[in-house]
Simulated assay, not measured.
Amino acid sequence: MSNFTEAVARRAGVDVAEAVAVLQHHRVRESGVLPRPHRLALTSIEFSGTKAGKFTDDFRFSWRLSDGLWCLAGDNLKGKSTVLEVIWWCLRGKNKRLQDTARRWISHVRLEGHIDGEPFSVEFQHKDGVPTGRLETGKTTPSIGFAGEAEFASVMSQFMMDRLNLEILRGWHSDVKGEEDGKATVTDWALFSHALICRNRNAEVLLGETSENGSVVSLLQMFIGLPWTSTRRDAETALKTVRQQQRGEKRRATEDTQARASSLQQLKDEITVAEAALANTGAAPALEDQALAIEQAAAHVASCAGRHATAVQVQLTVQQNYTELHQTLVEDRKRLRDMKENMAAKRHFGALAPTCCPRCTTPVADLAQARGDQAADHCSVCG
């Protein structure tokens, strides 16, 4: 058991086993060993492209660096910040701070340097906002290609975190500035790289507690090698997470208490209304009067039930009569329609004077006449 765990158990007033369980549950790591320092140095930066706008011209910038302290000087709007931002772009794989106009002008970039004496180089083409290139990490190791800003950032993050032996730190990000509620985050190379450039000229301190969410810790771990950095970050994040959970439970308990109080008040109001109604009813009637009223109500119900049964029987009889009359009406309408059709056909065909049989075209004069009283009016066909 380490001295750290024992010290935590002693300060918390619990046994060592419980302290170990709590630390493991909240993923608080012990990192009391002083990390080995690493040295990142750049040896050259080169980029080129075409400047567009009022004046269009090709440009190429090349800067060779050696050991020592270097200074980049020049008049305003001459590109000093652009050089630094391009270097930062190469080391991070992305840089939203580089002006859009300068980013569009740049078509080719190459950065060379070494970490602890091991060389590396980043070279890419930039076209239509998409960087495409590769990371070279030595003659004996294969290069790593990338296409697009997401792949570029992923390649550089993995390379830098591994070469600089950096631990992923846990941090806390507030949902709203100034508010305590938020969520736990991890500090990877994208945030560590902020330690390479001190942008805030008005910052009162570079080392200590600031609102930069891990940038200061990055400076401490990368350049000073402060021990217990990850342990402190883990503990702070775990503490803020637990406190946020407690605030949430407290809010829920308060809301539940308020809801219960509102429900209780509503019940009290209903009791008050019921008591007032009871007070206004006066003296309760005698049991004999109530029984008589119940008997009278029962007799009335029986009478109503008898009338209802009679009405139902009458309704059934009327319904049966209606059904029979409706069927008779339907049959009468059918016979009337047939009679009208027969009369119309008789008038139509009676007005005809055929000269031949409609089937065999035999002249009517040659057809045999029908016998009987109607022989003069009908032939053998129509008869």
Rank of each mutant, 00 (worst) to 15 (best):
M1T: 05
S2K: 04
F4S: 03
V8F: 15
D15G: 13
D15H: 07
V20K: 12
V28F: 06
L34Q: 12
P37L: 05
R60V: 02
D67T: 09
C71S: 15
L72V: 10
V83W: 01
R92L: 04
G93M: 15
K96F: 05
G113M: 02
G113C: 02
I115Q: 00
E123K: 00
D128R: 15
T132V: 15
G133M: 13
R134F: 10
G138I: 01
G148F: 05
E149C: 09
S157P: 07
L164A: 07
L164G: 06
E167N: 14
G171P: 00
S174W: 03
S174D: 07
A190Y: 08
L191M: 09
F192P: 00
S193T: 11
I197V: 14
V205Y: 13
T210L: 14
T210G: 10
S211K: 11
Q221M: 11
W228G: 04
D234N: 14
A253F: 02
A253M: 06
T254G: 07
T254D: 08
E255V: 04
R260H: 04
R260D: 01
S263Y: 11
T272Q: 14
A277L: 15
Q290S: 08
A297L: 12
A299V: 09
H300P: 01
V301Q: 11
S303M: 04
Q313P: 06
V318W: 07
Q320S: 11
E324V: 14
E324C: 03
E324T: 12
V330A: 10
D332Q: 06
K334P: 01
R337H: 08
K346I: 09
H348M: 14
H348D: 02
P354G: 00
C357Q: 00
P363Q: 01
L367S: 04
Q369N: 09
G372Q: 12
G372H: 07
D373E: 06
S380Q: 13
